[in-house]
Design a protein around this nucleic acid. Structure first.
Lengths: 144, 144
DNA sequence: TACAAAGTTTAGCATAGGCTAACTTATATG
DNA sequence: CATATAAGTTAGCCTATGCTAAACTTTGTA
């Protein structure tokens, strides 16, 4: 204790940021999945494991396993060997993710970044943006 | 294959973004550690497990285990029961992380976000920002 | 209708990153 | 200098995410 905190931010405040990042990570995958399932349902009428796996770039078995966890969390539902659906809460989360995603991507474009980079970076950034920052980004998009 | 890609971006391009995010995640922790170790060395002359654990908000044993991985990757070095050091590559990575961190945080402040939020969000965002986006952020900070 | 292809699931493995509890080493102080 | 306390380490556990290979369903078509 003695040597720590000689100056600057307290350890508690510091660690809060890292805790938030770790928490974000565990909800991140869920967000990606429900968003993608929503997209697939809108585009093709249904969401199938294979399509999810292809778009995420992971193995089929990985998707199956993850979907089981999402089902446990009440975000998705499915019958064996059938397509995947979103629960009410799943749709809510998907809409939320999409909203964030769109704002971050538009923001990056407004900032002058190329389309390809905007698409890629938005995917990583969207999960780590607080409400406050998201609002600031939306404001910036409006003004530019 | 038949039903996929009816419109929009190809599956390959899509999955590239997610692959980048997954790759970012595995280097993320390493970046946080070396950056923190560098800070501790600068501030207190040495980096000790306990301080790292406190600042990250994780258990001591977790730090020990992670440091072992970092040592395997040639980023840190240490003698048993002694403080942690950075290798040349560790320092390089730390400097890189710090540079990114500073730019992202300043950028968020310039965007009009509060100090607390800027600090917290920067921690999550810095690992998902490409060189192109980082440059755009730096430009923005300059102009504002 | 029967079978082949496509899609889904299960089993079993690996790694990363958390944790607690028990043990060892280093150090500061009476 | 002996020992209590602080710091570091080890062992063993857990969950999340990945993978491949093998088994099982569904479905389209000969």
């Amino acid at each position: 204790m003695a040597l720590s905190n000689k100056k600057g931010t307290s350890a508690k405040l510091r660690s809060a940021a890292f805790k938030r990042v770790r928490a974000d990570h565990s909800s991140e995958l869920a967000g990606d999945y429900v968003e993608m399932i929503a997209d697939l349902i809108d585009e093709q009428g249904e969401a199938r494991c294979t399509d999810i796996a292809m778009r995420l770039g992971v193995a089929n078995a990985t998707v199956v396993k993850t979907l089981k966890r999402l089902q446990d969390r009440g975000l998705t539902s499915q019958e064996p060997y059938r397509a995947v659906f979103l629960t009410g809460e799943g749709w809510r989360m998907a809409e939320d993710s999409r909203r964030k995603h769109v704002i971050v991507e538009k923001f990056l474009l407004a900032l002058g970044v190329s389309e390809t980079t905007a698409r890629i970076d938005a995917e990583g950034i969207e999960h780590h943006v607080s409400v406050e920052t998201l609002k600031a980004m939306a404001r910036f998009v409006m003004r530019n």
